[in-house]
Design a protein around this nucleic acid. Structure first.
Lengths: 334, 334
DNA sequence: ATGATGAAAGCAAACGTTTCCAGAAAGGGG
DNA sequence: CCCCTTTCTGGAAACGTTTGCTTTCATCAT
């Protein structure tokens, strides 16, 4: 390992001076600067960030704790979080915790031990381990795309009510009068918000409450499929279905097809997320898009502000969804 | 920050002893051990891994350098790499470099500066920056799912020839006599290997070379679509298409549909990867599956061996693909 | 000529660990 | 009872940086 001392020796100066040249801190004469730079070049010197971090007490590391990096939503989120973080000079430790609270707890400890400066949570377990790890109270974090149930925490997420509104408006404007919603787990707050936006808007547009069916799903493909199967057994089945994510929309579509119906002729289906899945499904999925890149940027910005110790006005940042009309929704057939 | 000294003071021992208790190294009397543990508990002490890493010269960090974490293939790979790494006590720095050689180069430097112990590459740029960064020659790495063109390097990948073979055998066994292959970029070695397996096997099974069409694609959806459109203009179009990944298979399917044909009645389409996309597309995609979990495990194992400085017998590890028959392929209609 | 000012550079301590070495205490065999 | 081992513990150096303080030296105004 070539260290700052080796550079200093070769350049004929002290380590202090080399450090100053590297960091551009303090004054150094042009001549010494030149000599130091040459020595660095000659030795192929790379500063040791472990040592620097230890000394300055800043690791320039962030933790990204996510429930499933393979899920299209979180993969896209991860990409934009990574991008925003590196732009700000931070690196990301990837923590894929799954549904495993033990792994989540262990990761929380490791992140503390590694002295990460902040954490992005794209997953909050029901037990909110956050509060059970006392050291964590000292380290800034931002919750992304989820809500903490118990307490207010810095959050960046979609305007979920608005998302529900967009879906309802779209379907109603196509002439649908009987509609269903396949939700995510209703213990998750964002699901309840989406549902509220959907039903309230539909009613405001003149759809009676008894024409709206709600089935609780699980954000997964099979949940969408099973939900749709349940819907198809209704005495007066709806003609339009709002699924709270694209994955369940695909499941619903598959259930509809198995019964021999077509989309969008017999049923209109609208999803939510706008992941790669929806773009290339058949038929291309109409969906309420989440602005993932903007969410990531806002989350990192907020986190960095918290790290700097700045006062933040809004602890909760809401971003606007956007309706993307593709081919899975169509006017109601008379 | 509560440090080992605070623990030592509270327990009435030296930092040395505390360290020994924490790491289980050296002998300590039951009485002191007990007192130290209590002090740790009381103070909520967490060791500082920056300091430890600096001292023992082992960061327990790995770099995972990937071209696009959002792509279903790499997302799945990332998940399993992360899992395998944490099982071995390592953490992962996520490096999403895209098509940006500048970012790749910067990341390489940062990884060196952060003293990562090894790197997993799921992306090798054509210029092979690997060789242009001299310090990198001292840090172990493994290339995953890709080949270096110029030089032999530790590699874990699919048996790509075998994958081509499986696709060809399946299609031929269904009675198809005219077949096409939409490849990835042919400058990538794994694509050439897959193609070789496909054409050689087809010919071995009695398909004349002139019945096999090859179109170069790009591993993306539009490449599959454009490739298929080209194929459809042939005077004697093939009845079966092997796409070198699932994404292009979806593109091909979409092109076929736009011309009013159906799958698998008019064309059989087989993909490769077995990502989430293929499972839930319509129709469900027949595909050649990559054993991503096993690949990740092997890659981490190989990397750790290299880190330990052990001699490795095989520098190239080939894993077997598996044919997954779903609904996008069918016997040739007479 | 002299003191004040400022630029340039170095010394040494510090960040939080681990580990080499040495020393003390305790135990055991003769 | 003495010496030798073994067990347990602590002091201090080291990992590679950064930084507060000091020193040196040149410049400049008085």
């Amino acid at each position: 390992m070539v260290s700052i001392k080796d550079v200093a020796r070769l350049a004929g100066v002290s380590p202090t001076t080399v450090s100053r040249v590297i960091n551009g801190t303090g004054a150094t004469s042009p001549r010494t600067t030149q000599r130091v730079l040459e020595a660095i070049e000659a030795l192929g010197y790379q500063p040791n960030l472990l040592a620097r971090s230890l000394r300055v007490q800043r690791s320039k590391l962030l933790g990204f704790l996510v429930i499933d990096i393979e899920s299209p939503v979180f993969a896209r989120l991860a990409k934009h979080i990574e991008d925003a973080a590196t732009r700000k000079g931070y690196n990301l430790i990837l923590c894929n915790v799954g549904e495993n609270p033990k792994k989540e707890k262990e990761y929380l400890e490791v992140l503390i031990q590694r002295q990460v400066e902040g954490i992005i949570f794209s997953r909050v377990s029901d037990e909110s381990l956050l509060y059970k790890t006392p050291q964590l109270s000292r380290i800034p974090y931002v919750v992304l795309d989820r809500n903490l149930e118990r307490e207010e925490a810095p959050t960046v997420k979609l305007d979920n009510y608005q998302a529900g509104t967009l879906a309802a408006e779209h379907l109603v404007s196509l002439g649908h009068r009987y509609m269903a919603c396949i939700t995510g787990p209703l213990k998750i707050k964002i699901c309840r918000e989406r549902l509220e936006g959907f039903t309230e808007t539909a009613q405001k547009k003149g759809i009676p409450a008894e024409n709206l069916f709600v089935v609780e799903g699980n954000f997964k493909i099979d949940g969408g499929k099973m939900g749709m199967e349940k819907i198809l057994t209704l005495p007066h089945p709806p003609t339009a279905i709002f699924c709270m994510n694209d994955l369940m929309a695909l499941g619903a579509i598959s259930a509809i097809r198995e019964r021999g119906f077509s989309i969008p002729e017999d049923f209109s289906v609208i999803g939510l997320d706008n992941t790669i899945l929806s773009e290339y499904s058949y038929p291309p999925l109409t969906t309420v898009a989440q602005p993932f890149d903007q969410m990531a940027k806002e989350a990192i910005n907020l986190l960095l502000k918290l790290i700097e110790g700045k006062k933040v006005r809004k602890k909760e940042i809401l971003l606007s969804p956007q309706l993307l009309v593709r081919a899975s929704t169509a006017p109601l057939q008379k």
